[in-house]
Design a protein around this nucleic acid. Structure first.
Lengths: 243, 243
DNA sequence: CAAAAAAATTGATATAAATCAATGGCATTA
DNA sequence: TAATGCCATTGATTTATATCAATTTTTTTG
């Protein structure tokens, strides 16, 4: 259950397999795109590449740290630990995603917890390195800002969903999110428990199960333990837009 | 009801009364703080200073525009127009607040509506000007990023409140927000209707009224039409933390 | 592989909050 | 000053969803 620190990993320095120019292919959109090879080398020097096992915590809410995360492999959930032990899963992150725990240039206190839902490989980069690059490459600053703006807009729309839609709409939305953003396939095996799916949809696990059951009875989906197949996407889209 | 465009306003060019060095006093924290006088002059050249009357729209959700807003005077509500005509007021902005409608470096489409709840004076600055400054002054880029990070964290905590707290907790929070962030006084006259207070707290106006009534009966607040006085702040804090 | 633990499912009941409907108060204007 | 209209308030009822409790299924482990 301990994570593996690979400060001097073999395949890392020569760029085959970590956060540098060759780490992501050209067509993968990534926050580091505007950087030159030199700039990227500077950014990732001294970084730590770490492996996390399932359920391990990568960033812990309310603690202090100065690194930002670049996901290389695996999936992790980003969630807020509410007051009464109630969690709210904000989103799932995967390969290529860049994320700061909410403390970026703002006190370094993490505002949410990130933990692995599959084995995760990611790079921890010190946030101070980002600032230095702004002087050399202002497109990078713009890219970071765009990243934040997107995140902002995402949170706004999620906030509206969670507060203004009925449960079936929220579950439909969660299912479509998993299909389109995470697994990119109509049939997928979720790495999340029903409890966690409920935490994404802001309801109890019992309610989530009941709605999945309804969707099954209406032939919108097929489920077999943790395997979910979306049969009637159009109807789900309709329900998510509500209705 | 029409807004006044003051392209060549008298007191604007010589810096007495608009978004330049002398517009905000030193101790007012503002996004433009890291800029030199020259940089600020560049930023605000060609800007438009505009007056809006109560209820006028400053930024309209789903429209396209390339300006960012710097509030000089008055109060405005930032809200999302949901699907079924249901609004969600995200926050109130006032003097010194800097805000982009969610389209900054990201397609220019506005993701929320901003409208005046008191007469508003603000400056509209073209977003493209921001980019140019990043090269000269990377502290400014950091400042913008900090601004976005804060906004992000605010949205996260608001999301948790709206989804995990009971109505009295949400109303208490709204009242404390108005006291601490907007009117900075225990006794204030709200520029918002009960309907709008409800839209801040994610409930119907009827529910909001009932809870205000309860707070009154418990001697936590005193209300007289649109005047609200907070009598027992500690109890409200306790209720907002829930309870 | 059996036993134990954890997670998922189903049903019955309770409740927070919305909706519907009516009344009351205050401000604007004719 | 009476009339009009908007906003605020109060009450009765409905409903979406949580909670509680029991059972079944799946996963883990000795």
């Amino acid at each position: 259950m301990t994570s593996t620190i690979e400060k001097n990993c073999f395949d890392c320095d020569k760029g085959k397999n970590c956060c540098n120019m060759n780490c992501f292919t050209k067509n993968e959109t990534n926050i580091f795109k505007p950087l030159t090879e030199n700039e990227l080398d500077f950014l990732v020097s001294e970084k730590q590449q770490i492996r996390y096992n399932v359920k391990e915590t990568i960033i812990k809410q309310n603690t202090s740290s100065t690194f930002v995360i670049c996901m290389k492999d695996g999936l992790a959930k980003v969630y807020i630990e509410g007051d009464k032990g109630k969690n709210l899963i904000v989103k799932i992150i995967g390969r290529g995603d860049f994320i700061s725990g909410g403390g970026l240039f703002n006190g370094n206190v993490q505002h949410f917890t990130i933990s692995a839902i599959t084995p995760v490989t990611c790079c921890l980069i010190d946030a101070s390195k980002l600032t230095n690059l702004f002087a050399e490459n202002n497109k990078f600053a713009v890219e970071l800002l765009r990243n934040h703006t997107k995140q902002n807009n995402y949170l706004l729309s999620k906030m509206v969903s969670l507060t203004q839609k009925y449960m079936p709409g929220r579950v439909a939305e969660t299912l479509l999110y998993l299909k389109n953003e995470i697994y990119k396939n109509s049939k997928f095996t979720v790495d999340l428990s029903r409890q966690e799916l409920a935490e994404m949809s802001n309801m109890t696990k019992e309610s989530l199960v009941r709605i999945l059951q309804q969707f099954k009875e209406s032939n919108l989906i097929k489920t077999q333990a943790s395997e979910i197949e979306i049969l009637d996407e159009n109807s789900l889209i309709h329900i998510s837009k509500n209705g």
